[in-house]
């Protein structure tokens, strides 16, 4: 699945997908669920919580 395909499926922009891949954006819960659904994975498989430094 390309970034464009994922963006289209999740209803966000390709720029947002790029930022998510680079860990430069934390998505809303709604978008996170949409992305997991598009990738046919669970939320935990796609996203891992960032530990506070």
């Amino acid at each position: 699945m390309t970034q464009t395909d994922l963006a289209r499926c999740a209803g966000c922009t390709r720029q947002t997908v790029i930022m998510l891949e680079q860990e430069r954006y934390v998505p809303s819960l709604s978008l996170a669920f949409d992305i997991a659904r598009c990738l046919e994975k669970t939320l935990e498989e796609v996203f891992t919580p960032v530990q506070e430094k």
């Binding site: 209803g11 966000c12 922009t13 720029q15 947002t16 998505p27 809303s28 978008l31």
Partner: peptide, 10 residues
């Protein structure tokens, strides 16, 4: 048109 999303709002 879906050319802007929640990240743009943030």
């Amino acid at each position: 048109r879906g050319e802007m999303d929640e990240r743009d709002d943030v």
